[in-house]
């Protein structure tokens, strides 16, 4: 009895991983605004330094789905403004005055049902929860995703205990110079956010709006893709990837078929074109154990690989390992 009274209070119970995941994915419960830093590391430059790209942004959020993001140059001026009213989205490039309009991100008519995508995630990753250091001065839980298959990135989310907002994300591959991170430097929940902040900018006084296909993607099924373009793609790829949806658009009057795959967390794109695509001019990433069917380069999307099968050109984009990319490319012959 006395021993029990002297024993330390039990540690606060950790939430279950799936519960925490669902809470984090749900719409934000409170309006808020904050300051975010985003950094991506993508491969080595010629002199051996790790390439990286950093952006700073101000974020304003009005539940359930209105967001305003201002990307800052590092002397504090605004370079781009993204506004989503939950239905449509505008991207204004301040310097050129150009505005691009399309569908709001996260509102796509996906082919894959969310439950199925979630099940795919759980089958491809081991989730775990732990206590974590504060982010932006707020107490967090840490939710980690460990891939079951080799050649994939790990991901960790730091989730605010009170509001379940994701305050920090880190995604990396151990031993590889590919990683990305986004974190709130400061965040303040607000009682409300003014509506005016979230008015999509269709046409500004200066420039005028361009409706960009890239911002208004289609979500075609495999059958629809075949009917529209004659191209066939597999419904599964090595590494636990399943087909999610496809789109067809054109670049310089040449058709591009975009097949998207997911393993629940990692996204992989396969593009099929009739003309070759110009890859970035940085150093080619050398092949690993598997021979590569074509050149592999680093980009902010991870890695980009191009190869030919007869008259068709393929471009794959993802942040999986080069060996996994080579394996996947093989299955697309």
């Amino acid at each position: 009895m006395l021993a029990a009274a002297l024993a330390p209070a039990p540690a606060r119970a950790l939430p279950r991983p799936e519960e925490l995941l669902d809470a984090a994915l749900a719409a934000p419960s409170v309006p808020y605004q904050g300051h975010v830093m985003v950094t991506q590391w993508y491969g080595h430059s010629a002199d051996g330094r790790v390439r990286s790209r950093t952006e700073e942004m101000r974020v304003y959020v009005r539940p359930p789905d209105q967001v305003r993001r201002e990307f800052l140059t590092l002397d504090g001026t605004v370079a781009r403004v993204l506004i989503s009213d939950g239905d449509r989205e505008s991207v204004r490039l301040v310097k050129s005055g150009r505005t691009i309009v399309g569908d709001a991100a996260g509102t796509g008519d996906k082919v894959l049902a969310p439950e199925l995508e979630r099940a795919t995630l759980l089958s491809n990753y081991d989730l775990s929860v732990s206590t974590a250091e504060a982010v932006a001065g707020r107490a967090t839980w840490r939710l980690s995703f460990a891939p079951k298959a080799a050649g994939k990135a790990r991901q960790t989310l730091w989730i605010d205990r009170e509001t379940k907002i994701v305050l920090r994300l880190k995604r990396w591959q151990p031993g590889r110079p590919f990683a990305s991170e986004a974190y709130f430097v400061s965040i303040s929940p607000r009682k409300e956010q003014p509506e005016e902040l979230f008015r999509v900018e269709d046409s500004t006084g200066v420039g005028s709006a361009v409706h960009a296909r890239a911002l208004a993607p289609r979500f075609l099924t495999l059958d629809q893709l075949r009917a529209r373009s004659g191209s066939t793609f597999p419904d599964k790829l090595p590494g636990g990837f399943i087909f999610e949806s496809a789109d067809v658009f054109s670049v310089r009057k040449s058709p591009v078929r975009h097949a998207r795959y997911t393993d629940g967390l990692t996204v992989l794109s396969v593009f099929q074109t009739d003309r070759p695509v110009r890859l970035p001019k940085n150093a080619a990433i050398p092949a690993g154990r598997e021979a590569l069917p074509g050149p592999l380069r680093a980009s902010t999307a991870g890695k980009v690989m191009q190869w030919r099968v007869g008259p068709r050109h393929y471009v794959m984009m993802s942040d999986v390992s080069r060996d996994l990319m080579a394996e996947i490319a093989k299955s697309l012959r």
Binding site: T39, T54, A134, A136, R168, K170, E181, Y183, V185, S186
Partner: peptide, 9 residues
């Protein structure tokens, strides 16, 4: 409170 990306990674 603000983890520096380079130092922390």
């Amino acid at each position: 409170d603000a983890p520096s990306p380079v130092e922390d990674t």
